[in-house]
Amino acid sequence: MTSFDDERDLAELKARLHGQFDPVLTEPIPARMYLRHPAWLDYARAAILVTLGVAIGLALPLLEPRSAPVVATYSPLPVRAARAHLVYAPEVRHPVEVDAKEQDHLVKWLSKRLDVALTVPVLAREGFELLGGRLLPGPEGPVAQFMYQDASGKRLTLYVSRSRKGANVTAFRFAREGNVSVFYWVDRDCGYALSGEVDKPTLSRIASSVYRQIEP
């Protein structure tokens, strides 16, 4: 068999497999996948604690990661942001869901899902271009992640989740999760976290720029 035939044959197989099995992708996920076993029940309980924890945590004037025992089952904003960074930043083929080429659509879509008008900061002066963004599930609802990349391929992610009504605004804070540095803050509408495997002064400079663009 020639390599051309072989490729055509593989393409045909792919098409048939996708034709038959792609409908599974959009089937609703059965509830038992979350709830059949105790491990999953723990998650349901955790979700309730998360809601409580977030309400109480955000009501505290100073939101420190892992400070209040009641938020023990809930990963704080910088931790969630750093983990999301670690999952998606190394992705070679699918770093983002919507490419920066469709920036208008991206911003509209994520703004609609988060129910808040989002601003995408421009970081060209800091040497980073927008790659695009994606929607992620968060403990309280949808979360947006924007990804940036510099000329050397280094990536930063900006994680944006809605804050609760009446949440206290927090100042700029720094956290480190493994190799990932995170600057984060909470304003009236949203919590923001900028993550990257870069040194603290650099990230601080970029985070200040993000902050200035988002909080005019």
């Binding site: 599974v24 992708l25 089937e27 996920i29 996948m33 999301a84 992620l136 599930p137 968060g138 403990p139």
Partner: peptide, 13 residues
Amino acid sequence: FELIVPYIPNLRR
């Protein structure tokens, strides 16, 4: 678990 959720549809397929 949040991080795993987006992969469930592919795992099911």
